[in-house]
Lab assay of single mutants.
Amino acid sequence: KEQQNAFYEILHLPNLTEEQRNGFIQSLKDDPSVSKEILAEAKKLNDAQA
């Protein structure tokens, strides 16, 4: 469930490039146990690119 939530949120971050988004999603698939950390990174990058 946590992985699904992170997946959904990353898909809807407006400021990520397609490449960045795909990278985060691939990381989620590779290691779902760190989905919280991956989501935090994605949000940080999204904010930095706002």
Rank of each mutant, 00 (worst) to 15 (best):
K1G: 15
K1S: 15
Q3M: 06
Q3C: 03
Q3T: 06
Q3L: 06
Q4H: 08
Q4W: 11
Q4K: 06
N5P: 05
N5M: 14
A6I: 04
A6T: 10
A6D: 05
A6F: 09
F7W: 14
F7E: 10
F7T: 11
F7R: 09
Y8P: 03
Y8L: 10
Y8H: 03
E9A: 14
I10C: 01
I10N: 01
L11Y: 14
L11T: 05
L11H: 12
H12F: 10
H12P: 01
H12M: 10
L13A: 02
L13V: 01
L13T: 01
P14N: 11
P14T: 11
P14Y: 15
N15R: 06
N15D: 07
N15E: 04
L16A: 00
L16V: 02
L16E: 00
L16W: 00
T17S: 05
T17K: 04
E18D: 07
E18C: 07
E19A: 10
E19R: 11
E19W: 15
E19L: 11
Q20P: 00
Q20Y: 01
Q20G: 01
Q20T: 02
Q20E: 04
R21H: 02
R21Y: 03
R21F: 03
N22Q: 12
N22C: 09
N22D: 10
G23H: 08
G23R: 13
F24S: 01
F24V: 01
F24R: 00
I25R: 04
I25P: 00
Q26C: 10
Q26G: 06
S27Q: 03
L28F: 07
K29I: 10
D30I: 14
D30E: 08
D30F: 12
D31R: 09
D31H: 13
D31M: 08
P32C: 04
P32W: 13
P32Q: 05
P32I: 11
S33Q: 14
V34H: 08
V34P: 04
S35C: 03
S35T: 13
I38C: 03
I38R: 03
L39P: 00
L39E: 04
L39F: 03
A40G: 07
E41T: 10
E41V: 12
E41L: 14
A42H: 00
K43H: 12
K43W: 14
K43G: 04
K43M: 11
K44W: 11
N46T: 01
N46E: 02
D47Q: 14
D47A: 13
D47V: 13
A48M: 12
A48E: 08
A48Y: 08
A48H: 14
Q49R: 05
Q49H: 07
A50F: 12
A50M: 09
